[in-house]
Simulated scan of single mutants.
Amino acid sequence: MSKDPIKKAKNGTYYFRANLGYDSKGKKIQKYRSGFKTKKEAREEYSKLILMNPEDLSDTKDKMMFEHYILDIFLPWYKTRVKLRTYDNRLPTVKKHFPYFYKLAVDDIEPIHVQNWQLKLSKKLKPSYVRAVQGLFSVAMDRAIVLGITATNPSKIIGNVKKQKTKIEFWTKEEFEKVISFIYKKDYYQHFLFVSLWFLFMTGMRIGEATAIQWEDVDFDSGVLTINKNLYYKNQTNYRFVEPKTKASVRHIVLDKCTLNVLTEWKNVQQSLIKTDFVMSYNGIPTQKHTLAYAIERYAKLAGIHRIRIHGLRHSHASLLISMGENPLIIKDRLGHEDIETTLGTYGHLYPNSNFEVANKLNGIISFKETKQNYDSSPKNQFTVDYLGKQKQKVQ
Rank of each mutant, 00 (worst) to 15 (best):
F74H: 04
K167E: 15
T13G: 06
V139C: 14
I274L: 04
Y14W: 13
D217V: 03
I158C: 07
I50P: 11
L350A: 12
I366H: 12
P54E: 00
L263F: 03
L119C: 00
T38F: 05
W171Q: 07
N355D: 15
E175V: 02
D59C: 15
D142C: 11
I109P: 02
I365D: 07
V254P: 09
I50D: 13
T226C: 15
P54R: 06
K40N: 04
G208W: 00
P99W: 13
V395E: 10
L51K: 13
Q391T: 10
K25G: 12
W198S: 04
F176Q: 02
V94R: 04
N381L: 13
K96L: 15
R334F: 08
D277Y: 10
T172V: 10
A359R: 12
A359F: 03
Q373K: 15
D62H: 06
E338V: 10
E209I: 00
Q393T: 07
E45P: 00
H306M: 08
I50M: 13
V279T: 04
F74C: 00
A18H: 06
L193S: 03
S272F: 07
L255W: 03
I366Q: 06
N235A: 04
K361C: 09
D256K: 09
F194Y: 09
T203I: 02
Q164R: 13
K234E: 14
D4R: 12
T152P: 09
S319V: 10
Y232P: 01
F16C: 12
P111G: 03
I285W: 04
A293F: 11
A318T: 12
H306W: 06
G21N: 12
S34E: 01
R206E: 02
G35K: 02
Y239I: 02
Y387A: 14
Y87R: 12
I213R: 01
A359L: 14
T93H: 14
W198V: 01
T150I: 13
P92R: 06
D277L: 09
L121M: 10
L273F: 14
R43L: 07
Q382I: 15
S319A: 12
G336Q: 00
T237I: 09
T150Q: 01
L20E: 08
R206M: 05
R298I: 07
F220K: 10
I274D: 00
D23A: 05
Y46W: 11
E370P: 10
I50S: 14
V133T: 15
F241S: 06
E67A: 11
N238D: 15
E370L: 05
M1R: 08
L49F: 08
T86W: 07
Y239H: 15
